[in-house]
Amino acid sequence: MLNFILSRMARAVMTLVMVMSFAFIVMRLSGDPATILLGPDAPQDAIDAFRARWGLDDPLWKQYLAYIAQIFTFDFGISMRDQMPALDIVLERIPATLAITLPAMILKLGIGIPAGVYAALHRESIADRGVITLSIFGFTIPSFVLALVLVLIFSVQLGWLPSGGQDSWQHAILPIVTLSVGGIGIMARFSRSAMIEVLGQPYIRTAMAKGLSWRDVVWKHALPNASVPIVTLVGFMVGALIAGAAVVESIFSWPGVGRLIVSSVANRDLAVVQCLLLVIASSMVAANLLVDIAYGLLDPRLRSKRSAH
């Protein structure tokens, strides 16, 4: 088990190194980092100072190591729009994003999993068909279309909810709903098929043959086993949430990380983009690491192997 956690951590570190390398490569391919991080209008002496400081005339591998070292000192450059450290700008936006992504995540799990499990336990019933149909719609409607339809109905027609901004808790409702609908659909569908697969396994039949009540079979045998694949999906959901936030925050003028990335890309504020890339990747990697460990704790095959693997 310890070995398992260590190997997962090694993989997480490896992935982070790859993300950093990716940022480095993209940055080097796209032009001179001095103009990229200082902006095209920077004065020549500032550019020269920057080049000297970061050793841009050194061989590439030296620059790469310097770049990594720079990141470990949390120096991501200066935003050319706001003339502030890029990291500060990004950190400032994180709470707003959490304010909508966390509730959305809770809705995805809290509605998606029970709906999927219920559908699996009542296969071919009307409820099952309803779950399937709704879930297909849930993940084929693009979030931007859904957002605009919701605005059209609840803001423009009914006037119940505001269509953008961040002044009260009502402002958060439409973004949260938009963010969670697709995920609920995916979660429901996935839980349904995970559960159906588990219910078809021989050990479930054995448990039933032993005379356990259906309730016990479901709670003690089927659900714990179905939770293993479901947990892996949660890792992917975190990524989908952040990506979804980019669209949803832009539509609802919600001042979070997602909107920041879209506006910085549009303005080519590259120091901020690079910082966002690394911050998002780190949180994704951390989330996946947690999921992996949870997976290890849930999966009896991994749990029982003490030292062999």
Partner: peptide, 8 residues
């Protein structure tokens, strides 16, 4: 798989 494609 670790980096959301949209962000990349």
């Amino acid at each position: 798989a670790a980096l959301p494609f949209m962000i990349m």
